[in-house]
């Protein structure tokens, strides 16, 4: 509960700071927005690692290969990072650049997910009666 108050406060302070600075120097407003987003992200990341620890324990209990779990975690990380970068691009008015980052993220996720797909295919082939 403590953390959400912090996040909301930092978001509002960032909003007000950009509001004050924008009429004087519009180029600084973007930097303030980026810094505010980064600070909020830093606050959250500790909790994300906690969630991953719990996931790790669950995966270890089920006996699924940890290789697949690692790929999944990496894909989640790529998703968060790409979303953050796209937000910055949209804020600065380069929405087409954001789309390209999105495309890059999609392609990278697809490439990383290929081992899982081949794994599933192998399992299905193994199940089929020869």
């Amino acid at each position: 509960m403590d953390i959400i108050i912090k996040i909301v406060a930092i978001g509002l302070i960032t909003c007000l700071a950009t509001l004050f600075v924008k009429p004087v120097r519009s180029d600084f407003a973007i930097f303030i927005a980026i810094a505010g987003g980064l600070v909020i992200l830093f606050l959250i990341l500790g909790y994300v690692s906690e969630i991953f620890d719990v996931f790790k324990n669950i995966i270890a209990a089920t006996g699924v290969s940890s290789q697949l779990y690692k790929i999944l975690i990496k894909i989640i990380g790529i998703g968060y990072l790409v979303e953050f970068a796209i937000g910055i691009c949209n804020d600065t008015g380069n929405s087409s650049l954001g789309d390209k980052i999105l495309l890059g993220g999609k392609i990278v996720v697809m490439v990383m997910a290929l081992p899982i797909v081949t794994n599933i295919l192998q399992i299905i082939i193994g199940l089929l009666p020869s």
């Binding site: 930092i10 004050f20 600075v21 004087v24 600084f28 930097f31 303030i32 600070v39």
Partner: peptide
């Protein structure tokens, strides 16, 4: 690490 970074940037901008 926190609000001070945001305030710092705003202060530099105004200054």
């Amino acid at each position: 690490m926190g609000v001070e970074v945001i305030i710092k940037i705003a202060a530099i901008g105004l200054l």
